[in-house]
C-alpha cells in the first residue's frame, strides 16, 4: 500500500459519499446519469466477484463490499426512488452504452492476463468498462451545460481517484521489480484522459470560490 493508492481509494469513497448525499440525502438525481451508475455497478460486481475466494486483505475486502453496496444503492434509488425518478432526466441521459459494453466484453475475452481463467477475462472486462463508464455522465453534463455544485465535486473526486491510481502504478513500477500491469495502465490513462476537459472547467470555476457552479461550453 502506498500513499497514492490510499488517497485514490479515499477519493473514490468520497465520490460515493457525495453522490449518496445528493441522491439519498438530497433526494435529487438532477444531472446524474443512471447509465453511468449502472455501468459502475457492473464494473464492481464483475471485478470484485473474487470476494468469494480472494482474501487479499481486510482493507480490500471491506472496500469491495462498500463499493458494491454503494453502487447498487445508487442504482436502486435512481430507479425506484419517487423523488429521484422525478428529478432524473431519462431522455437527456441517452448515451448508447451498448457501444461501450460490447467492445469491452470482446476486449476482456481477447486481452487479459491469463486466457485460461474466466475470472481474468471478467476482471479485464471490468477494467476496460470502468475506463469508459463515465462517458454517459460527462455527455449528460455537456448537454446540460451547467453542473450543479455537488455533482461537480462528485465527478472531480471520481476523476481524481483514477489519476491517483496512475501515480500508484508508477510508484509500484519503480519500487517493485516484477510489477507491470499493462491492462490497468492503459485503461487508467484513458479513464483519466476523459476527465481532462472537465478538470479544466472545474478548476476555472472553482478558483473563484468552491460554491460556483461549473459551466461547460
Amino acid at each position: 500500500m502506498n500513499i497514492f493508492r490510499f488517497l485514490g481509494d479515499m477519493s473514490h469513497i468520497l465520490s460515493f459519499l457525495l453522490l449518496l448525499h445528493k441522491i439519498v440525502g438530497g433526494k435529487s438525481a438532477a444531472g446524474i446519469s443512471l447509465r453511468t451508475a449502472e455501468m459502475y455497478a457492473i464494473v464492481f460486481c464483475t471485478r470484485y466477484i473474487d470476494l468469494l475466494w480472494n482474501f487479499a486483505s481486510l482493507y480490500n475486502y471491506l472496500l469491495k463490499l462498500l463499493f458494491i453496496g454503494a453502487s447498487l444503492t445508487i442504482v436502486y434509488f435512481m430507479r425506484y426512488g419517487p423523488s429521484q425518478k422525478a428529478t432524473y432526466n431519462a431522455d437527456e441521459d441517452a448515451f448508447p452504452v451498448q457501444y461501450l459494453i460490447a467492445p469491452c466484453a470482446v476486449l476482456g475475452v481477447l486481452i487479459n492476463q491469463d486466457h485460461s481463467s474466466p475470472f481474468e477475462m471478467v476482471w479485464a472486462f471490468s477494467i476496460y468498462l470502468e475506463a469508459v463508464a463515465i462517458l454517459p455522465q460527462l455527455f449528460l453534463l455537456q448537454k446540460q451545460g451547467e453542473v450543479e455544485n455537488l455533482t461537480s465535486h462528485y465527478v472531480f473526486a471520481l476523476g481524481a481517484y483514477r489519476a491517483l491510481y496512475l501515480l500508484n502504478w508508477m510508484f509500484r513500477f519503480m519500487t517493485e521489480p516484477d510489477y507491470q500491469q499493462r491492462i490497468v495502465w492503459l485503461s487508467g490513462l484513458v479513464q483519466t484522459a476523459l476527465y481532462c476537459d472537465f478538470f479544466y472547467h472545474y478548476y476555472q470555476s472553482k478558483k473563484g470560490g468552491l460554491n460556483k457552479s461549473v459551466k461547460l461550453p
Partner: peptide, 10 residues
C-alpha cells in the same frame, strides 16, 4: 502480460 497475479488492488 503477467500471469493472473492475485489482485491486491481495488
Amino acid at each position: 502480460i503477467s500471469k493472473g497475479k492475485p489482485k491486491d488492488e481495488l
